[in-house]
């Protein structure tokens, strides 16, 4: 073979090399991910994503906004409703737990003093010089309530003035996003440290069929193991990283897994969909590159493609490979 012929063959085979050497599909997935608040910087995570068939969704931030919200204000006397909102809300500003933060949104800040936190029982303090206590009804000597969510009693001047109930603030599109996960072949499983009753209510509201209740945050490894033993590839979406998981989706920069702008279950679904579409696009582009490269090399070897035609074949072939790698964005 003459050197000219060899050059023509190599040029005509260039699309196959391009398809295998240049990760266009990954670049496209990363770009699309960034636009959607999904950071696919970890190549291993990108590779693992398409295999995930189970995702453990932490209660905080995925199907909920990560906050609680007040769902009921029940004064002992109707006249006390505003007082209940004001005094409980003012004291709530001094609380450092989700229940307190939810109640704090009922009112502006007031003049607070002598604030004391009483473990899991509640919080006490002085609002405009009135002694106020906010906490479990039994701690305050008030009748217990059987409402869904968390119900706290409120006392002002040592007199009970009512109850406030808070519950998870469910993301409005959580049921649709959960359905999208399931449509992609990923089974969502809700994990919560809340009671069985509240967890079941939340799962049902989001259309999730499996859940774990009364599970503290440091219990995730055990759940992952349990699922993996069943032959599943398990991802965990939550505020904390779980090393035992196959894939971690979190809003913190932990250096591996997929980092998300937030833990919204919709974003989790988008992240996993992106990994799948990237994998599919990479496969398609390799096949396309191989086909175009082999055909070009054959034509060049047969002398059909002179040097100018071989160059044109290489350019058009690489372009076709790139187009196939870009493909369509996942819905």
């Amino acid at each position: 073979m003459t050197p000219a012929l060899v050059a023509c063959v190599l040029l005509a085979a260039l699309p196959a090399v391009f398809a295998h050497a240049v990760p266009v599909a990954r670049w496209v997935a990363r770009a699309r991910g960034r636009a959607a608040g999904v950071f696919l910087d970890d190549r291993a995570a990108l590779a693992l994503g398409p295999r995930v068939d189970t995702v453990l969704l932490d209660r905080w931030g995925t199907v909920t906004t990560g906050q609680l919200r007040v769902v009921a204000v029940d004064p002992v006397e109707p006249d006390h409703e505003r007082n209940l909102r004001w005094f409980a809300g003012a004291l709530g500003h001094a609380a450092d737990d989700p229940v307190g933060r939810a109640i704090a949104r009922l009112s502006s800040r007031g003049k607070l003093s002598q604030v004391e936190r009483h473990g899991g029982s509640g919080i006490s303090g002085s609002v405009d010089r009135h002694p106020v206590r906010l906490g479990r009804p039994d701690w305050l000597g008030m009748d217990a309530r059987d409402d869904a969510g968390v119900t706290v009693g409120v006392q002002v001047d040592s007199r009970p003035i009512g109850y406030i109930t808070v519950a998870d603030d469910v993301r409005p599109h959580a049921p649709e996003d959960v359905a999208r996960l399931r449509a992609d072949g990923v089974e969502p499983v809700l994990v919560s440290e809340d009671t069985e009753r509240n967890t079941r209510g939340l799962a049902e509201a989001c259309g999730i069929g499996q859940w774990y209740a009364d599970r503290p945050a440091d219990d995730r490894a055990e759940l992952v193991d349990e699922r993996r033993r069943g032959g599943h590839v398990v991802a965990v979406a939550g505020p904390a990283t779980v090393p035992e998981a196959d894939l971690v989706l979190t809003d913190a920069d932990v250096g591996h897994g997929i980092r998300l702008a937030d833990l919204d279950v919709g974003r989790v679904a988008t992240a996993l969909a992106l990994t799948r579409s990237a994998a599919r696009a990479a496969t398609r582009s390799r096949r396309t590159g191989l086909g175009v490269g082999v055909a070009g090399a054959a034509l060049a070897a047969a002398g059909v493609l002179a040097l100018p035609l071989a160059i044109g074949w290489a350019v058009v072939g690489c372009g076709a490979v790139a187009l196939v790698a870009v493909g369509r964005a996942p819905s």
Binding site: R82, W86, K111, H130
Partner: peptide, 14 residues
């Protein structure tokens, strides 16, 4: 008095 108006309403009720 340097307090919240709702505090005054509460006191007035009392």
């Amino acid at each position: 008095l340097g307090v919240h108006p709702q505090t005054v309403r509460y006191r007035w009720k009392r």
